[in-house]
Simulated scan of single mutants.
Amino acid sequence: MAYGGAAAAHAAVVQAVKTSGVIVRLEPSEFVLIASKARNPLIVASKAGWRGNKFSYLTSYKGLAFYAQSSQPLDLPGDAEIVNAKQIWVPS
């Protein structure tokens, strides 16, 4: 029975990846570098964690989605449009 549950969970993750496309996880400094290369980047930002002590960021560049998580707010480009989201979920 446990195998069936694990298989269903795996299938759900595979479907989520197919739906969302490729998500590239970066270190926070690399995320800022990618975001600074784009003109007027759209960045989705979210506070997470038990005490709101984790910051998640998502943006796209050249057809790929880039994601980073940091313990401190990132210094984002001044021309970025920031969308504050309640939560960012990416498949693991």
Rank of each mutant, 00 (worst) to 15 (best):
M1C: 08
M1W: 10
G4Y: 13
G5C: 04
A6Q: 14
A6N: 08
A6D: 10
A7Q: 10
A7K: 14
A7M: 09
A8Y: 07
A8D: 08
A9W: 02
A9F: 00
A9Y: 07
H10P: 03
A11N: 14
A11M: 12
A11E: 11
A12T: 06
A12C: 05
V13R: 02
V13F: 03
V14E: 02
A16E: 07
A16W: 02
V17T: 02
V17H: 00
V17W: 01
V17E: 02
K18N: 13
K18F: 07
S20L: 10
S20Y: 06
S20F: 10
G21L: 10
G21K: 01
I23L: 03
I23Y: 03
I23V: 15
R25Q: 13
R25E: 06
L26H: 09
L26W: 01
E27I: 00
S29I: 12
S29T: 12
S29R: 07
E30C: 06
V32L: 11
V32E: 06
V32T: 15
L33N: 14
I34Y: 15
I34M: 14
I34A: 08
S36R: 07
A38K: 15
R39V: 08
R39F: 08
N40P: 03
P41E: 00
I43F: 12
V44Y: 08
A45F: 11
K47M: 08
A48P: 04
A48W: 02
G49L: 11
G49A: 13
W50G: 04
N53L: 12
F55Q: 13
F55W: 09
F55C: 05
S56E: 15
S56K: 14
Y57I: 14
Y57L: 04
Y57Q: 01
Y57E: 01
L58V: 10
L58E: 03
L58P: 01
T59G: 01
S60I: 00
S60T: 07
Y61R: 05
Y61M: 02
Y61I: 04
G63T: 02
G63D: 06
L64E: 11
L64F: 11
L64W: 05
A65W: 04
F66L: 11
F66V: 03
Y67F: 15
Y67W: 09
A68Q: 00
A68M: 06
A68F: 01
A68W: 03
Q69V: 11
Q69N: 11
Q69A: 15
S71A: 09
P73K: 01
L74N: 10
D75M: 14
D75L: 13
D75F: 02
L76H: 12
P77Y: 03
G78A: 14
D79L: 10
E81K: 07
E81D: 09
E81A: 12
I82E: 06
I82C: 01
V83A: 07
A85F: 05
Q87D: 06
Q87R: 10
I88F: 08
W89E: 08
V90P: 03
P91T: 02
S92R: 04
S92Q: 09
